[in-house]
Design a protein around this nucleic acid. Sequence first.
DNA 1: CGACACTTTGAAGACGATCAACGCCGGTGG
DNA 2: CCACCGGCGTTGATCGTCTTCAAAGTGTCG
Lengths: 247, 247
Amino acid sequence: MNAISSTIQNLPIFNGLAADEKNALLQIGQPRKVPRGEMLFAQGDTVKHFYIVTSGAMQLFRSNADGGTKTIALVRSAQTVNEDEIMDSCHGYRVNCVALEDATVLEFPAKWLKDAAGKYPNFALNLLSMIASRAHAAELEAEHLATMSAPQLVACFMQRLCVLHDFDPKNFKLPYSKTIIASRLGMEIETFSRTLAKLKSHGIVVEGNNVSITNLDAISDYVCDACSVSGACATHQALEKKLHKLN
Amino acid sequence: MNAISSTIQNLPIFNGLAADEKNALLQIGQPRKVPRGEMLFAQGDTVKHFYIVTSGAMQLFRSNADGGTKTIALVRSAQTVNEDEIMDSCHGYRVNCVALEDATVLEFPAKWLKDAAGKYPNFALNLLSMIASRAHAAELEAEHLATMSAPQLVACFMQRLCVLHDFDPKNFKLPYSKTIIASRLGMEIETFSRTLAKLKSHGIVVEGNNVSITNLDAISDYVCDACSVSGACATHQALEKKLHKLN
DNA sequence: CGACACTTTGAAGACGATCAACGCCGGTGG
DNA sequence: CCACCGGCGTTGATCGTCTTCAAAGTGTCG
């Protein structure tokens, strides 16, 4: 019998399913440990599994012929991996997946995902919604890369960290190394480092791994005017709301 | 009675549906003309419709507070618009949509899409596959923007044009103005213009609107080594295959 | 203490954006 | 018919930003 935490049962992907349906689906998942540094799968491998991360952190990245490497995504607890590759019927994984810290995952056969989508219309709609919002996030990121400067990208990333992980904006710790974050943002570590200095005057202070976001207005002027979604940046709005709640 | 072309009936999204099911779904679509320059919908408008483009070309773009504008996608006949916004249950459109040339579209109520996905599992799976591959394309584009130089981006775009629209690589016409293409690639028109000159020595010759791709090997060395999907660039492989067929 | 990964800082160079000027073309109006 | 205009594209010069190479500082762990 698997010990299935309520966090997993409450994943948005299971919305609208009865408790016994959820359990039947989750029983299929095999818990698996992935020690820091170990690859869960590699670019090009046959797509065999769908994963739910239950602890730790994974890095999804690609490498090319020149040895260049680009971090595609950083994934933490309660996030899912591979739904797009499975639904897109890819032959091979399009990314490498490695554990940044000791991690645990639930491993499901790839077929499980398609079957569940065929069997439960609600599951299919949840999956559609997840993948659609992932597509949107990727589009937005492409837009940011094309239009934002390095400091704007970093400021935007810091805001998203806060909202996504529900951190206290006034004082939180970076959940990844600066090297990894720079790679995630598609910039060099040197640029990232210099950028942090520039951000001090815009209300974002980073010392070591400690971050403190103090002046939301300055950030808004600096970052969110370049952000084209619905006039004002949605992430920034969420952050303001959060800060308001904390006070 | 709508005249529904077989092109539309054979859209991948209808795969696995019976002919009468397709027809029932397609009957709901209202044909609509969009003259060149007219907006089909604007950023922020309530999401009311799903569209299938049946002729002409549409531009999807965003604009931000600074007046900056970024082309998100260029859409031609037999492509669909808005599936992600509908499935992601957005309140408002995230992009503007304007006709680049006189166009016609089939207009469906937004609800039609969700209902069809709930009613026909095959339709839901097709939709999942479409959106998943769109998500992948967006991720790939973000990666390209982060890692490729302007000439590489342009060369990559030219190759994709060929494959997507089934053009003869040795001689085809640009389907969009250079201004639009530059905007689509996130670069300035001046940069784009200068870039075309550089590409001549790499086997891509552009004169006016005529393009001719002659030296695939040179392009591969120049572009595809930077492309990290499955070792070699999938688009480039498709192009090589195509060229081989033509000879 | 030394090895090593991670980060910071400096200096040089490459690349793309920006500003400005100009050529080309199709359309409009005198 | 010609003059004028606006949209489009090219070309040149300059500037700011990010990458690259190099060196040194910080931290942890055996």
